[in-house]
Design a protein around this nucleic acid. Structure first.
Lengths: 312, 312
DNA sequence: CTGAAAGCGCTTACAG
DNA sequence: CTGAAAGCGCTTACAG
């Protein structure tokens, strides 16, 4: 081919905005450069931030991202994973609601990390919960602390669901024990699997109506903290004067809420970035070594605001 | 083939979890059953909800969704659209930041709908802005109302960007005129293209520092409302006692903010659903008729809360 | 170093 | 009605 002809071909390609067909390339190469990302709910700030962090890193590495939001239903998660398998994604990042099944590609779990299933990025659930309890008990002297958290059990028979709920509940019990406090069963409450605010709202109202209501509440998720805030308001209780509140997750604009909510800073986008890097490592090595990688734990920082009683 | 053999093949397929290769099918059929969705920022509640609504409808119709978040940069949007073209998506849903270019597939715009470019789903920007101004002027008697909104101009040479900003600013001026109020130039402020809260925070502080500060502010986006709230708090002003606030978009948990923020209910997921239906219609007919479809406008409802002065 | 051929896994139009 | 062949648009190993 003459150089002149070559140049003319290039120019024509440029002019017609020719894009090589990625499908054909993928079919031939056996790699799609696509990563599937499965999250319980894209509209929840935490997962949106994780998604952003992961997408940033994966896009920079030449991958693109297929996102599916499963509405926290195990069967929808299963369907999503199978669809992603049909599309031959090269790997998966999964914040599982319990429906995951192996499709033979590298997977990195985030948030909810099933113990036997591979590498993942999780929060320091135990340490974080302890931070909240220790702060309420140690610095503010509370002795009647209730818990409203995600359920510890598996949803609809799912093997992996709600490890987050398990870890946080266990850590709450342990921290209460270490502080030498009593934990009557009615102080230990769990929400629906979706951690929906309306459910937490009712739980908070029922806690407020107890003969011996708690003087402080630990919420195990941001949506639950919002619901608790609403429920306490319904009951005519002031936060933190009548009852204190500390939340595991940081609600959006926590400092502008009434009152500003004491919570743990989670570094959301960092989680997505780390998950993406773990996955990229597994894709590069492809020798199964990544399967043995330990779960990375993201440390949490306590943000003291008014809801716990600080600064009043 | 004998019936017995057929059954055994089916059983084996089931057992091995055989998934037909979607790539090969797409290559042959000339259709990927994939829809590209381009949004400025998945972590913004509005776009996340639109995404959910669209995904719901598209998944039910057998399509899957490729999401790209462009961080509101026109060049990143352009790159995203080209990548989606390389993957041969069957159609696009685009909340443009100005970088869109035609790739020869049906497109539906949401939020920011460029006039000559096809069907879309937009908000009633003019009517919504008028609702806010009329409420502040008519029901609360404000005569010095300032505006903090998205910029009306195109970002970095993009032809389509910020129609939303244009429409809301024009509507603000018109509503102020109809109410017979003065509009000094220093009351008419616009943020950066990203509508970032920190920029609005500084604008609010500078409004508060004016010799004749406004008695009310209309925020043209939820992130701007949050920033204004912070800026007014920085300046030691109480909302709504010292200065009232009404926001075009509803911030997350608007009723739990301090104060609860008066704003317009936008029906976010409905927007995504409508956009998906428009796109499905265009894909089915495929005769270009959809190109002539008028832009659908979503009506908005005023939610009266404390920040405007209601209920005080 | 260049160019023609085979093949990725499907679907579809066509021959038997 | 069944079965073999061609082809979607690439990449890659191979022959010239």
């Amino acid at each position: 081919v003459s150089l002149v002809a070559r140049d003319r071909v290039w120019a024509a390609a440029e002019r017609l905005r020719f894009e090589p067909n990625h499908l054909a390339r993928s079919l031939r190469r056996g790699s799609t450069l696509a990563i599937g990302m499965v999250v319980p709910d894209v509209a929840v700030a935490f997962y949106a931030s994780v998604l952003k962090g992961a997408q940033e890193t994966l896009t920079a590495a030449g991958y693109h991202v297929l996102v599916v939001s499963t509405e926290r239903a195990a069967d929808r998660e299963r369907a999503a994973v199978r669809t992603l398998a049909a599309h031959r994604v090269d790997g998966l990042i999964v914040a599982t609601s319990g429906g995951y099944e192996d499709i033979g590609v590298p997977v990195v779990f985030v948030d909810n990390v099933p113990a036997p299933a591979g590498p993942g990025v999780a929060l320091c659930n135990a340490e974080g919960t302890a931070l909240l309890v220790d702060h309420l008990a140690g610095e503010h002297g509370h002795r009647a602390i209730a818990y409203v958290g995600p359920p510890p059990g598996a949803a609809d028979g799912a093997p992996f669901a709600h490890l987050v709920g398990r870890e946080r509940l266990d850590a709450f019990r342990a921290a209460i024990g270490r502080a030498g406090l009593a934990l009557p069963p009615e102080y230990e409450r769990t929400s629906d699997a979706a951690c929906s605010a309306p459910v937490a709202r009712e739980i908070a109202a029922s806690l407020a109506a107890l003969e011996q209501p708690p003087t402080a509440i630990v919420a195990g998720a941001d949506t639950l903290a919002i619901g608790v805030l609403q429920g306490l308001r319904d009951s005519g209780l002031r936060v933190p004067d009548d009852i204190a509140l500390a939340s595991f997750d940081e609600p959006a604009y926590a400092d502008l809420l009434d009152p500003p909510v004491t919570s743990l800073d989670r570094h959301d986008t960092e989680i997505g970035r780390r998950a993406a890097e773990l996955l990229l490592g597994a894709l590069r090595s492809n020798n199964g070594a990544a399967k043995l990688a330990p779960v990375q734990r993201i440390p949490l920082t306590l943000r003291r605001r008014r809801s716990c009683g600080c600064g009043t």
